[in-house]
Amino acid sequence: MSTINIALLGYGTVGKGVYEIINSNQERFLTLLGQNVKVVAILVKDIDKHIPPKEGILLTDHFEDIIQLPKLDVVIEATVGVEPSFSHITRAIQRRCHVITANKEMFAHHGQEIIELAKTYGTTVGFEATVAGGIPIIQTLNKLLNINQVQKIEGILNGTTNFILTKMREEGLSFEEALSLAQELGYAEADPTNDVEGYDAFYKMMILSQVCFGQQPDWKAVFRKGITGITPDQIKHHDTTNLRIKHIASITKTEQGIEAILKPTIVQPSHPFYNVEGVENAVSIHANIVGNISLSGPGAGMYPTASAIVEDLIHACRTDVNEWHTSAVSQTSIV
């Protein structure tokens, strides 16, 4: 029986989650794909801080050790930053590997370029994990866009900021106290700037815009405001009138182009995001035929993002499962 060989680039919270899901669901993979799925290599930044999770797995801090493996089918990229992630993904595609990424900053910058390169080499690109954690928003949009025209997307796209705002309202914590709690629970990084200043949600907005509208707005023209200026008094004041503050991204297609705004927004009980609490993300899609579709789910933590990666893995393997080890097909699939 053949085996699908996988390399993990990055072994932090998300990378460990991906490995655990793959390792503990072997029977499920065999049922779905008729093949074994095996992590054969893991790339880490500091090899002295890690040990291989299982005997026989290559643990290395040199990408060359991975890309030169004699048999490699899928590369899962779970690191941060534009480089060297983009270079690694590019070389994996040129090696004719299917690629899956959770790196929203890199994909916001280079997503379309990666997809075009994959077309050339006949591989698939999975990027569900770049947006909204465990919500299958990319797959939903890909299916919806067959005939519907999306006019607007709104979303709570960062679980960390939503958690902070929830704790400030429910427990009367200051911003600093709620942030500290988020860090203790693993929802926020030691340097939380990307989350609390809105950069993380911004990159996700750009990816959604590219998927929905085939283009991104001028990044410099996007209004972006984080949540660091929100005070307990502001939240308490709005709470007394049954209003809540949510950090909402909005992307709208207009005659003038794509308009994108990310800012703290006051919502009423009738708003679809009013009851989206804690680390949950939510996305509301406004389309011309189906109307409004809202999805919500966990957006921070080990398993939501890892789950999205593994679902992309299943989609990638199913695209050509009967000819997995043959020459590349002529057209890429976006999974």
Rank of each mutant, 00 (worst) to 15 (best):
P232G: 06
I245H: 01
V222Y: 01
A249I: 03
E255Y: 03
K253T: 09
I248A: 09
P264F: 12
G278D: 15
V222E: 00
T228P: 02
F223N: 08
K263S: 13
N242V: 10
G257C: 09
A260G: 07
H271Q: 11
K236W: 04
S270E: 15
P272F: 05
E255L: 08
V222T: 02
T241C: 05
T228Y: 03
D218W: 01
D218T: 00
I261T: 13
A260D: 09
T241H: 11
K236A: 15
F213N: 10
I258N: 05
P264C: 08
E277P: 00
L262K: 04
L262M: 10
G257M: 08
T254H: 02
P269H: 13
G214P: 01
G257S: 09
H271C: 15
I258Y: 07
I258K: 07
Q216W: 04
L262P: 03
K253V: 07
Q216K: 12
G278I: 00
G278S: 14
P217S: 02
T240K: 09
T241Y: 06
I251Q: 11
R224E: 09
A260V: 10
D218I: 01
T254D: 09
I266R: 04
G214T: 05
L262F: 07
V267D: 09
H238K: 11
I245R: 02
K236G: 08
N242R: 13
G278Y: 13
P264I: 08
H271P: 14
V222N: 01
Y274E: 06
G229H: 12
H271S: 15
K220M: 05
L243K: 14
I230P: 03
Q215K: 13
T241Q: 13
L262R: 05
V276R: 06
K220A: 06
A221N: 05
F223Q: 11
K246C: 11
I227T: 11
G257W: 12
Y274M: 06
T265D: 10
I251N: 07
H238L: 15
S270A: 15
N242P: 01
W219I: 01
P232I: 00
V222P: 03
P264D: 10
V267H: 09
G257F: 11
D218G: 00
P264V: 07
H237P: 01
N275E: 14
G278R: 09
G278C: 09
Y274K: 08
T240N: 10
T240V: 02
S250I: 07
Q268F: 14
G226M: 11
P269V: 13
F223A: 05
S270L: 12
K253R: 13
I245N: 01
F273Q: 13
E255I: 04
T241K: 12
G278M: 14
I251G: 04
I235R: 01
G278H: 12
F213H: 08
G229M: 09
D239I: 00
I248Y: 08
K220N: 13
I230D: 04
P232Q: 01
V276F: 09
V222I: 06
I235E: 03
P232K: 03
I258S: 02
R244Y: 05
H271K: 11
L243V: 03
K246T: 08
H271G: 13
S250F: 03
K263P: 04
R244V: 04
F273C: 13
D218K: 03
